[in-house]
Write a protein that binds this DNA or RNA. Structure first.
Lengths: 320, 320
DNA sequence: AAGGCTTAAGTTACCCGTAACGTAAGATGG
DNA sequence: CCATCTTACGTTACGGGTAACTTAAGCCTT
């Protein structure tokens, strides 16, 4: 017991005893067993479960980096779960991770299976839903409104005179953020009298190659496309490369717009039309909200971190 | 006790009792507390601590993805630690994560602080060191020989007639894998009568922008450079963009070689000269070795997953 | 020097799941 | 019908740390 007090430095022991205990700590290479502490219920654990769809998408890697770094400064650890964009994987992971008594959970997306919802409510721990802003979250939410960001892009492209617009993305089985961007996009384009031709590739990750290949498929199916909006910048980059390979000039022959503003855009000589979201900040904010809740500070339920449309120069620069 | 048997499904109860117990499980939303099980010492935990330098580098994100997916299939979870390429961060993280009684640890790199080494030896759990192949590992090691891969690249470039060669990378404080590649590279180039001019940017992540900017610095300092070898593909891509922006033709005016063979290379019309390493496979192999050790299968101490030089077309294609 | 006060150190019980063992009821066989 | 075996279920103890409490020791005051 006295040793426990010394190790925790909570006082109530003499200097002589402290030295003796610390000597033994060194000799034995003693490391406290945090399992026992948490198990006894005297303290909360310092685990935060973090679910991420996949790390092949640079965006989510950045979000995770933001989360883990910020959690680290508070002495918390991330327990990772890769859900591959499926609710079933997420549910399985939630069940497992809850059995480890985490202090809280950070989940990507706002759609969860009914059983997952039950478990989350039952667990009685803070939950932050990220990415998709959720106006009535389980607990807390931080992200952006994807529908609006798609809508803004649609309005922007139609304002430049584009009418026959393509969309290239991947098809995941869940109602996800990319789907909402597409909905917003279609609404804006169709509202302005334009039309959207969709091309969804069956590919597991939304990255360069499906962007290349999806562009080829789209242009084969619909030759009069004037402009293509992509699920994200990586796919848009694949599209740019397809155009370069086929001798299509951007933006003269075809316009290209991405989403997410990846780091790679920082070095491209032709600025990619895109939509900027601060992924790192999103992760950090999620971690901060979690920490705020765990220290009983007042925390807003919903934080919109916003987005910024980047006009770029891969679309024509004024209405025809 | 009977309830415990039912939940674990280990037998020794009647069907009637099973139904009654499962009903209560549903009613109460009971989830077993794995902390208690592990704490009691009856089972090992299913945590694996995974330390990664940073996730801004796509390569490490892929390695982590490989690890976590494979661990997941065995019912294990990754506890993440981002060490920012410093031994001190790694040491702090090891101390914390060990207090959670993980079943094992997967660490990036072969260099650890003396205290970290002590703790690792004391912990008596499996440790896999990845990335850098370590012929005398703490326990197990999987990766490639970075010195050799740098050497091969140096030999390849000099075989094409390049003599004044630049290197662009970032400077991290640790003796890391990139440093070893550079050593191997210099040895090969100097052995063939060539010279290497180094340009190390003080930038925290080895990605596109430092590649762009480092190229500018290098070419300002040494105008007669014929070819540049980069720390990785992302930096090489930044270099390619710099050349494009300045009207330098690749490979006619200058040769460009990267390392790592990132997915982005799959869509570029000019194949980037690089060195292929299967990052996902590396992660999976690390997880497999860990699982093998935990199930008392015989596991090789050292696994070389190899690399493959990719000639590409961003360097000239035969000796002058 | 006795009484009251402060500080240091020790004791007990608890957290939850399960191994090991104990007991009671039912099934089987001679 | 009793001895024996099998199955179902119950009891006890343990793991490591710490809250809450108790005891012991040191210190000062009058």
């Amino acid at each position: 017991m006295t040793a426990s007090r010394v190790v925790r430095g909570e006082g109530g022991y003499s200097e002589k005893t402290r030295v003796k205990v610390m000597e033994q700590v060194d000799v034995l290479g003693y490391l406290p067993n945090r399992l026992a502490t948490v198990f006894a219920g005297d303290q909360n654990s310092t685990f935060i479960g973090v679910s991420i769809p996949d790390l092949g998408n640079e965006v989510f890697a950045q979000v995770l980096e933001g989360i883990d770094r910020k959690l680290g400064t508070f002495g918390y650890q991330s327990v990772l779960g890769l859900t591959q964009h499926t609710q079933q994987e997420e549910e399985n992971w939630i069940r497992t991770v809850l059995s480890w008594q985490p202090a809280g959970l950070i989940l990507t997306g706002r759609y969860h299976s009914p059983r997952a919802m039950d478990m989350l409510r039952n667990a009685g721990i803070p939950v932050v839903e990220i990415w998709d802003l959720n106006s009535s979250p389980l607990d807390m939410s931080v992200g952006i409104n994807h529908f609006d960001s798609g809508f803004d892009m649609g309005r922007y492209l139609t304002s430049l005179g584009y009418q026959n617009i393509g969309y290239v993305g991947t098809s995941h089985d869940t109602a996800n953020a990319a789907t909402e961007r597409l909905s917003g996009f279609c609404k804006a384009v169709e509202g302005a009298g334009g039309a959207v031709v969709k091309q969804l590739c069956l590919h597991d990750t939304a990255t360069y190659y499906p962007g290349f290949y999806g562009t080829e498929q789209l242009l084969a199916a619909a030759r009069d496309i004037e402009c293509i909006f992509y699920q994200n910048d990586a796919m848009a980059f694949g599209g740019l490369q397809y155009c370069a390979a086929k001798g299509l000039s951007v933006p003269d022959d075809i316009g290209i717009a991405g989403w997410g503003d990846l780091p790679i855009a920082s070095v491209m000589n032709r600025r990619l039309t895109s939509c900027h979201v601060s992924h790192l900040k999103l992760g950090q904010k999620a971690a901060e909200m979690m920490m705020g809740r765990l220290t009983d500070e007042p925390v807003p339920t919903c934080t919109d971190i916003g987005f910024r449309l980047i006009p770029g120069s891969t679309v024509r620069n004024s209405g025809v």
